[in-house]
Amino acid sequence: MTIRPRDHTHQPPALTPAYRSSQLRAPSHKPLRYAPSRTEATGPTFGHDLIGPTDHDLIINYARPGETAMGERIIVHGVLRDEDARPVPNALIEVWQANAGGRYRHKKDGYLAPLDPNFGGCGRMLTDGEGRFSFRTIRPGPYPWPNGGNDWRPAHIHFSIFGAAFAQRLITQMYFEGDPHIALCPIVQTIPDPGAIDRLTARLDMAHSVPMDIRAYRFDLVLRGRDQTLFENRMEGA
């Protein structure tokens, strides 16, 4: 089992000047490629005993007993697969986000919007045997950020995902269907492929909404494929 080479046509390049922070943090050399070895094809596994009963429920996992986070109640759910459409089971997904007003519970975030005493802004879960995941949260607010102009992030939830192999490790962000800030955001627009941006955009899913309680959004994730292809053990880009 090995890891298929990454298809960079769907990935942001390192240097994206309109996203200013990349200017001094993007390596100027092209990354070197080698045949993935046992190190890249293996990865850490996490047990179900790691996950507490409310870790995946951001509406209550930081709230005072009997209280809930402020904002639009939503379920986010989807399936984690690889590029061969195989579900990835028992994969750790961690999420974090701003509160309904666009404020993060982080000591470095000083945005004007208030903290919600009942919202921490993080959660985690393992995918089930079919690669499915689901968590409850509140819809985060957009927030302004320093990038040299009047830049606002679209509402988003950050995702960190482990696959079966460390080379599948991925961090990304989920956006919400219909948000006009998606097209305006220099971070979203680091992605060169419109289809890839569309796949980061969750869709309202009324079929999984609970009447008089909570609406659902559908968001599917894909990790790199693993296959038997033999690689020529030659460094590319060297």
């Binding site: 769907h10 590029e83 921490g120 993080c122 991925l170 796949r199």
Partner: peptide
């Protein structure tokens, strides 16, 4: 299927991955 596009972890990655560092 195509791999999901990556996005920056941003300045507040700690909240999700190392919460004690976020306070």
């Amino acid at each position: 299927m195509k791999e999901t596009a990556s996005q920056t972890a941003g300045p507040y990655v700690h909240i999700g991955c190392v919460p004690s560092v976020a306070g």
